[in-house]
């Protein structure tokens, strides 16, 4: 009996040692040198592998960062400046700071504003529908409403609003990775500078038709009247192909343009109710009022039914 135990122990340990030796030799033989900094940099990155930096994954981005001479054009939108600074410190380089951004849907053509002119019965994805024709409404620039952007968002920052039929960006979740920008066949998403308290002011329309047809197909379309361009004191509004565009880098959120728009296609979000004078952000009272409002909004956004 004891001999059986002995032989078992000897033979098994022998096998184990032999296998370990082989593994060790193989590991030595096929060892690939990898810069240890890649792991360090990757550790700092958010590991969401969203592709927002333009690379297939965080590791590829880390490799690119180490190879790069300087950080020009290399930015992780999810981690933001904080992450980039940390990595720069680690690698002894300087980060190029970029303003945080947020995705914005440049279409406000909810069902009530945009009458249907036909009925789509094909496969309900935006890319397939867009390859076939202009869409169910008269506006061929607007949102199709089949939610390809929601599918592609890795951060749960988008959902389809059942009433309007349009996707909604949940600002606090949005990392500006740009997946929705790439996915949307109508190019309706834009990454805009993120202002404090997630305030936004933008033209929610991409319709390049002339005023008449645009207005006919959607009551909140930009008709290219240039009233907003005239009123803007910062030259932030550009009119191109009958369509106004507010440059978020130049815009100072003065809110002069929005009331000028005859079709309400300029949208303001996150501002306190309009008063006679421009609201001073530093006064306590208005700030609380504002916070309440944004909290309410956030609560609303958080109570999204799962579907």
């Amino acid at each position: 009996m004891s001999s059986v135990v002995l032989y078992t122990i000897i033979s098994l340990s022998g096998l184990g040692i032999a296998a370990a030796l082989m593994l060790f030799l193989a590991a030595q033989k096929f060892k690939v040198y990898e810069d240890p900094r890649i792991d360090q940099v990757e550790h700092e990155l958010p590991a969401s592998n969203c592709g927002g930096c333009g690379f297939p994954g965080c590791r590829n981005f880390a490799e690119a960062l180490i190879k790069a001479e300087d950080f020009e054009g290399l930015h992780c939108p999810v981690g933001g400046n904080e992450t980039m600074n940390k990595i720069a410190e680690l690698l002894g380089k300087t980060a190029v700071t970029q303003d945080p951004k947020v995705a914005v849907l440049r279409c406000n053509g909810a069902c009530e504003f945009r009458p249907m002119v036909n009925k789509y019965d094909g496969t309900k994805t935006c890319s397939i529908a867009a390859a076939l024709y202009g869409g169910e409404t008269g506006c061929e620039y607007g949102c199709l409403g089949y939610g390809d952007c929601v599918e592609v968002c890795k951060f749960d920052a988008l959902y389809m609003d059942a009433d309007t039929g349009l996707p909604v960006v949940i600002d606090k979740n949005c990392t500006a990775c740009g997946a929705c920008v790439k996915e949307c066949p109508k190019n309706l998403f834009e990454l805009r500078k993120r202002y404090k308290k997630d305030r936004k002011i933008y033209v929610a329309c991409m319709n390049e038709d002339k005023g008449g047809p645009a207005k006919k197909s959607c009551s909140v379309a930009c008709i290219g009247c240039t009233k907003c361009v005239k009123v803007c004191t910062f030259d932030a509004i550009i009119m191109n192909n009958n369509l106004a565009f507010i440059d978020s880098e130049l815009c100072r959120l003065c809110r002069k343009c929005a009331p000028e728009c005859p079709t309400n296609s300029i949208i303001e979000i996150g501002f306190p109710p309009k008063k006679e004078k421009v609201v001073d952000d530093n006064t306590g009272q208005t700030t609380t009022a504002l916070e309440n409002q944004t909290n309410e909004e956030n609560n609303k956004l958080n109570n999204i039914p799962e579907n």
Partner: peptide, 8 residues
């Protein structure tokens, strides 16, 4: 009535 659209 609205016309129906779908792929071939």
């Amino acid at each position: 009535r609205l016309l129906t659209i779908s792929q071939s």
